[in-house]
Lab assay of single mutants.
Amino acid sequence: VTTYKLVINGKTLKGETTTKAVDAETAEKAFKQYANDNGVDGVWTYDDATKTFTVTEMV
């Protein structure tokens, strides 16, 4: 189990959260659900070296 981080660069919501998951795919599903629940829709990137997902909403 690995800890993954999500950085949110939203128009109205900004911040970070973490989740523990067995792999990046599982973490991504959890983060996308979290973003969807919070009304964040944007471009996703993932950095495997730092285990960090970033979602950026276009203005």
Rank of each mutant, 00 (worst) to 15 (best):
V1A: 12
T3M: 08
Y4R: 00
K5R: 07
K5G: 04
K5Q: 05
L6A: 03
L6P: 00
L6Q: 01
L6M: 04
V7D: 03
V7A: 05
N9Y: 07
G10Q: 07
G10A: 13
K11I: 15
K11L: 12
K11F: 15
K11S: 14
L13I: 15
L13H: 09
K14W: 12
K14I: 13
K14D: 07
K14N: 09
K14M: 08
G15H: 15
G15E: 15
E16N: 03
E16W: 06
E16Y: 06
T17W: 15
T17I: 12
T17F: 14
T18M: 10
T18D: 14
T18L: 14
T18P: 02
T19C: 05
T19E: 10
K20I: 13
K20V: 15
K20Q: 06
A21K: 03
A21V: 06
A21W: 03
V22S: 11
D23R: 04
A24K: 12
A24D: 09
A24W: 12
A24Y: 10
T26N: 10
T26L: 07
T26G: 11
A27W: 01
A27K: 00
A27F: 01
A27G: 02
A27T: 01
E28G: 10
E28V: 06
E28I: 09
K29Q: 13
K29Y: 13
K29W: 08
A30Q: 07
A30H: 15
K32I: 11
K32E: 05
Q33S: 13
Y34E: 03
Y34P: 00
A35H: 02
A35I: 13
A35V: 06
N36H: 13
N36G: 09
D37G: 06
N38W: 13
N38E: 09
G39F: 14
G39A: 09
G39Q: 12
V40P: 02
V40S: 03
V40H: 05
V40F: 09
D41K: 07
D41A: 07
G42H: 02
G42A: 02
G42R: 01
V43G: 09
V43H: 09
V43W: 08
W44N: 00
W44L: 03
W44Y: 03
T45H: 08
T45A: 12
T45W: 09
Y46W: 04
D47G: 02
D48M: 11
D48K: 12
A49K: 09
T50A: 14
K51G: 05
K51R: 15
F53L: 01
F53H: 02
T54M: 06
V55T: 03
V55W: 02
V55P: 00
T56F: 06
T56Y: 08
T56P: 01
T56I: 11
E57Q: 05
E57W: 06
V59F: 06
V59P: 15
